[in-house]
């Protein structure tokens, strides 16, 4: 089975959040709901302070806990490309996926009474385009593609400080880390 995923380059990301905004715009999300979120990590002490950024959407895990725990089957993994999709007609808003995702990806939409999440812009992929976050990134820090190909090109790191261990759900994500 093909497994699509993201490559994220921490070394070039400037934390501008345009990926977050592009995602919000593409999915027409209300205030407080984010399918992709940029986190800032401050460390070090004067005179050597440091700031890192981490842009996080759904990692379309190989072993997704959200899919396993979803009681209705609203969350499922698409056979052809491994994307974790959400069927809003099946979702009952039990929020168990919010308890299950180690990356805090599914978002509860109060006004709709259901959850929503990043679908890797499956509609754009079908048209041969890239996800909105990838297209919008001003530093080309995000890439989408077959995860094994991305890992060969960029390395196989999915564990960075602050993130849960990748052994839990095997995320389809590889990260280029920043030099110390």
């Amino acid at each position: 089975m093909t497994q699509l995923g993201f490559h994220y380059d921490m070394s070039t990301c400037v934390g501008c959040r345009v990926c977050q905004i592009a995602c919000k715009d593409k999915n027409n999300l209300k205030v407080g709901v984010l399918y992709r979120q940029v986190y800032d990590m401050e460390s070090g002490v004067y005179p050597n302070p440091r700031i890192d950024h981490l842009s996080m959407g759904c990692n379309h895990c190989a072993d997704p806990k959200c899919v396993k725990n979803c009681p209705t089957g609203a969350l499922y993994k698409r056979e052809q490309d491994g994307i974790v999709l959400h069927d809003k007609n099946k979702c009952i808003g039990c929020k168990l996926c919010l308890w299950s995702c180690p990356y805090g990806v599914p978002q509860y939409k109060e006004d709709e009474g259901i959850i929503g999440k990043c679908d890797l812009c499956a509609d754009l992929l079908a048209k041969g385009e890239e996800p909105a976050c990838v297209t919008a990134c001003i530093t080309r820090s995000l890439h989408v593609g077959e995860i094994e190909t991305l890992r060969k090109q960029y390395g196989n790191i999915a564990d960075v400080k602050g993130l849960p261990g990748s052994e839990m759900t095997r995320p389809s994500l590889c990260i280029t880390t920043k030099k110390k």
């Binding site: 009681p71 209705t72 979702c91 009952i92 808003g93 039990c94 509860y108 009474g113």
Partner: peptide, 14 residues
């Protein structure tokens, strides 16, 4: 507890 209480019957599908 559900956001969509009328869909409660679907909670047994998995």
């Amino acid at each position: 507890h559900l956001g969509t209480p009328l869909g409660a019957y679907r909670a047994v599908l998995n």
